[in-house]
Design a binder for these strands. Sequence first.
DNA 1: AGCTGATCATAC
DNA 2: GTATGATCAGCT
Length: 222
Amino acid sequence: MKIQAPPTSQEDLLMRAHRLAGLCLADVASELKVNVPHNFKRHKGWSGQLIECYLGATAGSKPEQDFVELGIELKTLPLSYALRPLETTYVCYAPLRHMMGVTWETSNVRNKLQKVLWIPIQGERDIPPGERIIGSPILWQPSAKQSLLMQQDWEELMDMISLGQVESITARIGQVLQLRPKAADGSALTEAIGNNGSTILTRPRGFYLRKEFTQSVLDGAF
DNA sequence: AGCTGATCATAC
DNA sequence: GTATGATCAGCT
């Protein structure tokens, strides 16, 4: 895969992102010399990593923004024919223990979502990955209202985790954020707080943004 | 049909 | 296992 130099500024990043608009994923893949999968069953993160690479993000699994120097997180967003989000958006791993002292202000969720460069991409399953068209980038910062909604959900979910109720959290909790399993498979286990402060083993979880919320991001951009 | 819970690939 | 990139697919 061809390696791209990292963007030197927000303007540089936006300029590169705008160059992607109107291209299909196969165009970008060919420029970077990578193969295009026939479907995403075994290549679920392919689009995101392709765009990351094109925009010069440092490939890594560190719990921080894609462009730390610019304070910007990159997210691709699969859209339906009606231009609505087809999937929830993964934000980050959820701490299930040792989270005392962590507040919304210092949380990984807030840090990552302070400024996001959204790259919309056609996501209907009947469109082969390579033929999917990339849309215009949206540089977004949460409004006061959006930020408050996220904070409320984060605090509710973190309270439950702190109180040893992680096992009773379902994806139905939260207005805009939700907590769902995030692991390779059902055999993955991690330590969490259980009843009476005991330590239990449970499936790792991650924070996700609901589709209705990312829709509000798209709406605000037009 | 859409959502929730499960799953896939990769780096370290 | 932790954490990134996400989408899949069974069930309601």
